[in-house]
Amino acid sequence: MIDGMPAAEVTAVSDVGPQLRRALLACWTEVSNAGGAVGFVPPVTEDDVEPVLDALLGRVAQGREQLVVVKVGGELAGWAVLSLSVSPLRRHWATVLRVQVHPARQGQGLGRVLMTGVHDAARALGLEMLHLTVRGGYGLEGFYAGLGYREFGRMPGAIRLGPGDDREEVHLYAVL
């Protein structure tokens, strides 16, 4: 236990049961509604997020993606996805998607714990490099730089949050 917080446990998950599915859905919805850059623009409901989550979990079940979760006290605190390539030319790296920590757990260092677990899961899969993107204007580049990621490009206007609100998509990579 550190600073009164139970130890965080990070695991790679390939079999998602109903309880974990419900927790993932609630987390993704709450992170989105708190303004998290995880694929939606608030406000969203679980009905909005559910089909996207189910498609993701289908890819996890097929082995095309690897789910990595962080739990504190046995409860889901956050999660991320390693999206694996089917191309033989790209099997040495993956894209990290949907990195999120539940709003009630933010500010406790769990983002760093989660990403360390993502790196460990990637190494266990034999991966050598990771790629991710962040939504411009959120200041996330510094967080990822602290984890060894380097920027290699920006796509202006790639993300449209609403009429007249286009953002850059910032591309980052890390060598494991």
Rank of each mutant, 00 (worst) to 15 (best):
L89F: 15
Q100N: 08
V49I: 14
F152S: 01
N33G: 06
D15L: 12
A55Y: 12
E151G: 06
L89S: 09
G162R: 12
E168S: 12
V41D: 06
F152V: 02
H119T: 11
V113T: 15
N33K: 04
S32F: 11
R160Q: 11
V38F: 10
R167A: 04
T95E: 15
G78F: 10
F40W: 10
P163F: 01
D165V: 11
E141W: 09
Q62V: 03
Y149T: 05
S32I: 12
S87R: 15
V10T: 14
E75H: 12
A26W: 09
R160K: 10
T133V: 12
L84K: 12
Y138H: 08
V70G: 02
V60R: 04
P156I: 03
P163K: 05
L97S: 13
L20D: 04
Q62P: 00
V81N: 04
L125V: 08
A77G: 13
S87T: 07
G126F: 07
V96K: 10
L20Q: 07
R154L: 13
L176V: 03
A158F: 09
E65A: 15
L76D: 11
D54A: 14
T29N: 04
M129W: 01
W93L: 02
G111V: 02
A26H: 14
S83D: 05
R135H: 10
V44H: 08
W93N: 01
H119Y: 00
T133P: 01
A174K: 10
M115F: 11
L25C: 09
P51I: 06
E141V: 13
R112Q: 15
A12M: 04
M115P: 04
L172W: 04
V44M: 07
A37M: 10
M5T: 15
G137W: 03
F143W: 07
L161H: 05
W28N: 07
R64M: 07
A26K: 12
Q106Y: 08
E9D: 13
Q100D: 00
R98H: 14
A12C: 05
V81K: 01
D120M: 00
A77R: 01
P6Y: 12
W79T: 09
K71S: 15
Q19N: 06
E50S: 15
L57Q: 08
H131Q: 12
A55K: 14
I159Q: 01
A77P: 10
P18H: 05
A104E: 14
R150P: 00
W93Y: 15
R135K: 11
G111C: 07
E30H: 07
E168R: 03
F152R: 00
Q66V: 15
R22M: 05
Y149R: 00
G109W: 12
A104T: 13
G117C: 04
